[in-house]
Design a protein around this nucleic acid. Structure first.
Length: 267
DNA sequence: ATGGTCGCGAGGCGA
């Protein structure tokens, strides 16, 4: 079985590329982030005609997560228990469309779009950290309830856990950039401490291996990217991994998402 | 080329 995660940066804008990619990648399950649409604008037929069931969670033009599967799609869950909400001062906090789960081929799949944080001093940064802490708390509970559970936490984590995961760590530190700060890295490490491991890095080690390249500043041709999209697997699932791939080719050309798909093969 | 980007949705925000 082949599972993958991809921040598509708008499903509608990426419909043709996504369809082509589904056909050549041969994935069984795809976790999608940043669909950027509500259900009524979702391209349901794109998935159906290619043999995939699909579940979507999206309120508006922001965020949005989906799971497509051709090995079953059961027990769909929108958001996670205790998922923090966010609202600007004076407005009602909203739980954003950033987490969606389904059981596909015996694996509990989570499609996750972790809040960006924006800047180190922005209110979105404590939101990001509390969001991650709340998810980790839930994920620890799933494993405690069943240590043999096959769980995959896939998505855009908006964290570069190691210095080699950005093209120039000195620049990030000097400019007080997000994604590399100690609290963000600690929030990511907490998942590994809870038993969820990055199953791609051992097979696709850095440096210089990235999943995201900013549209601006010619980041892609300059090979200035970030590794921020991850597949974290529970122990039982991690033991099944036979291969992994970051599809850098998909970042090329006109009309590409700024993220590349990340794939994991299970035996 | 001394700036260099997208997408949504119709001006500015988010990444």
């Amino acid at each position: 079985m082949k599972i993958a995660t991809w921040n598509v940066n708008s499903l509608r804008a990426r419909a043709d590329r996504l369809e082509n990619w589904l056909q050549r990648s041969n994935v069984d399950v795809l976790a999608i982030q940043e669909t950027k649409c509500k259900d009524e604008n979702f391209p349901w037929e794109l998935f159906e005609k290619n043999g995939y069931e699909v579940a979507h969670h999206g309120f508006n033009q922001w965020n949005g997560v989906a799971i497509a599967s051709r090995v079953g799609l059961d027990d769909v869950e929108r958001g996670f228990a205790g998922q923090p909400a966010f609202g600007k001062a004076g407005t009602e906090p909203q739980q954003e469309a950033r987490a969606l789960a389904a059981t596909c081929g015996g694996v509990r799949i989570w499609s996750l779009y972790v809040p960006n944080g924006r800047t180190l001093l922005d209110p979105h940064m404590p939101y990001k950290l509390s969001w991650l802490a709340a998810l980790r708390s839930q994920a620890s509970g799933w494993l405690a309830a069943d240590p043999e559970a096959q769980i995959a936490l896939l998505g855009d984590w908006n964290i570069a856990p190691r210095d080699e995961d950005v093209w120039d760590i000195d620049y990030f530190v000097r400019e007080s950039m997000t994604h590399v700060s100690a609290p963000e890295r600690a929030a990511f490490q907490a998942f590994e401490d809870a038993g969820f491991s990055d199953v791609v890095r051992p097979l696709r080690p850095g440096p210089g291996v990235y999943t995201y390249w900013d549209y601006t500043q010619l980041r892609f041709p300059r090979k200035e990217g970030m590794r921020i999209d991850f597949v974290l697997a529970s122990p039982a699932l991690a033991s099944r991994v036979t291969d992994a791939l970051i599809d850098r080719e998909e970042r090329k050309g006109k009309g590409a998402s700024d993220h590349a798909p990340v794939l994991v093969e299970l035996g």
